[in-house]
Amino acid sequence: MEQGTIRLKTGLAEMLKGGVIMDVTTPDQAKIAEQAGACAVMALERVPADIRAAGGVARMADPTIVKKIMEVVSIPVMAKARIGHFVEARILEALGVDYIDESEVLTPADDRYHIDKRNFTVPFVCGCRNLGEALRRIAEGAAMIRTKGEPGTGNVVEAVRHCRQVMDEIRMLCALPDAEVPNFAKECGAPLEVAMRVRKEGRLPVVNFAAGGIATPADAALMMHLGCDGVFVGSGIFKSGDPAKRAKAIVQAVTNYNDYAMLAEISKDLGEPMVGIEISSIPDAERMQERGW
């Protein structure tokens, strides 16, 4: 019997495909998310929009919050650790969370290195803006990838940009003559070995979700069309007027992203969406997507 294998880690992500992972901060919110059809929840102390508003240093959630959320739902529970903070990650692993998000939403704890995720039993998901970043995280042991987007903005433009960037670079990598691959990998900062796997399979070797700014069923469907396997919704649900209804609508939109008549039906009467932020109005230093190396 083997545990903590890469197949088990990537396998759980495979089971999450076509689903919606929702940020929750209380057991009540976790129940609402589960009842709406979330395939997993992300247990947090504050959603990204509030982290952005509060400023200061954002850290791993209090274990009590994570534990309480784990107790009330039967679906997988994820939690965030700071970039490079392997002790926070070990604590979350000891708590028994099902997935760790080494996340730029929290303040990075290491300005050079991400967590070496290979030695953990618990699987990790990490954010990326481009192929090089995705493949560096996979080389470090990430079993699932997501776009970074710009968290807490309710503005999908950055998630779209990051998703298209990854897809473009995969297409390029697959089309290159053999002789040009090592230099391509060098230029985009991708470990050659993982790049060769992508080239062989024509896709990332792990599941790829959309995250960072998704606020509506149409946003979620858009990301599915661009080739994502599922979506994370952070602030978009519990910062909206009617979270239960919006959560359910986003779940339905991810399954039926191809059926526009159905999307029209799903998108009706959802109440106020979260207030969005125009990306250019965010000072460079406050852009969470710039965190990570």
Partner: peptide
């Protein structure tokens, strides 16, 4: 248990013959 308890094992399954089946148990 939870994800950290997920496991792979070679499973005896007479209907499928030998060798044992590589079974992946996830939550």
């Amino acid at each position: 248990g939870r994800q950290v308890d997920s496991f792979e094992t070679d499973l005896e399954m007479p209907e499928l013959g030998l060798p044992p089946f590589p079974a992946v148990f996830i939550r």
